[in-house]
Simulated assay, not measured.
Amino acid sequence: MKYVGEAQETPTGAPQEELATGERSTRNRVARSILDHGPSTVADLAGRLGLTQAAVRRHLDALVSDDVVEPREQRVYGARTRGRPAKVFALTDCGRDAFDQSYDQLAADALRWIAEREGGEGALVAFARARMAAQAGAYREAVESAAPEKRAEALAKALSADGYAATARSAPVGEQLCQHHCPVAHVAEQFPQLCEAETEFFSQLLGTHVQRLATIAHGDGVCTTFIPKISHTPKNSKAPPVSTPSKTTDNASARTAGRNPA
């Protein structure tokens, strides 16, 4: 949810879709005014935005319902005047997060500092692997509790719960794990070690070599990982067990993360 736009309220009699758009735009202006000026009274907002107090109250009711703003008692400095202090409206944490933040820049600055002070490429790889290890529990539980042929789908559901909007679909001789959103894409664009560690983790988790075909951080529309079909030998079969991927193979796969294959 982004609070942007400066359109005026839609005139009475406009089509329903236009009316809804105008309502959202004005509501965005109310939230933006609180962001720019701090906790504000209904009168403050009405004066700044050129709206009636009744209109401001209506938009504030909707923003409170959406957990974007919250009412507070206005702080009074010095001697109190008669009567109750005016109520002010302030942004909630959820409302503040709806505006553009500098978290990506902060994360990039932190990783750059780690690289410069703590050992360059090796330190970044160590950090990226530690980050994946910290998230591994829920993913491992989801995958290990699923039937072998459902593990890619189980991983996709676990990733979706963390905001990656992931799906799994059949592909020739295997499956494709598609992540339609990446919360760290802007940082991963500068530090591909994050993508490489994720690819390496998927390989370890699924017990097979995987190949990263595309990433959002590299400019692709979707992060796509190819998972080859794993043969499951029946218990009574004399066929040799499927060999685990070698360390060299895993490393080679990780190095392709963030890059389309040639």
Rank of each mutant, 00 (worst) to 15 (best):
M1N: 01
M1W: 00
Y3V: 03
V4N: 06
E9H: 05
T10W: 07
P11L: 14
T12I: 07
G13S: 11
E17D: 11
L19I: 00
G22Q: 09
E23K: 12
R24D: 00
S25T: 03
R27A: 11
R27W: 00
R29F: 04
R29A: 02
V30F: 02
R32P: 02
I34E: 08
D36E: 14
D36L: 15
S40T: 02
T41K: 06
L45E: 05
A46V: 08
R48I: 02
L49E: 08
L51R: 08
Q53P: 03
A54P: 03
A54D: 14
R58A: 09
H59N: 10
D61F: 13
L63H: 11
V64R: 15
D66S: 12
D67R: 15
V69F: 01
Q74N: 10
R75N: 10
Y77A: 15
A79S: 13
R82K: 13
G83T: 09
R84N: 14
P85M: 14
P85D: 09
A86P: 09
V88R: 13
F89D: 04
F89V: 05
T92Q: 03
T92H: 06
R96V: 02
A98H: 06
Y103R: 06
A107N: 06
A107T: 10
A108Q: 08
A108N: 06
D109L: 14
D109G: 11
A110L: 15
R112W: 12
E116W: 01
E118T: 01
G119E: 03
G119H: 10
G120C: 04
G120L: 07
G122W: 10
V125W: 15
A126S: 08
A128F: 06
A134Y: 01
Q135G: 00
Q135F: 00
A136F: 13
A136P: 00
Y139A: 03
A146W: 01
A147M: 08
P148A: 04
E149G: 00
E149M: 06
E149V: 01
R151T: 01
E153M: 08
E153W: 03
E153N: 05
L155N: 09
A158I: 00
A158L: 13
A158H: 13
G163C: 07
T167I: 10
T167Q: 10
A168C: 12
S170I: 12
V173Y: 11
V173K: 15
E175T: 11
E175L: 11
Q176Y: 01
L177W: 05
L177G: 03
C178F: 04
Q179W: 01
Q179D: 08
C182V: 04
C182N: 09
V184H: 00
A185E: 11
E189G: 12
F191L: 09
C195V: 07
C195Y: 05
E198A: 10
T199C: 15
S203N: 07
S203V: 03
G207R: 09
V210S: 02
V210I: 13
Q211Y: 00
I216H: 06
A217E: 04
G219R: 12
G219L: 12
I227V: 14
P228A: 05
H232Y: 13
T233K: 13
T233S: 12
P234I: 03
K235H: 09
K238P: 04
V242L: 13
T249S: 12
N251M: 15
R255C: 07
G258H: 03
G258K: 05
G258I: 08
N260V: 07
N260D: 09
A262S: 08
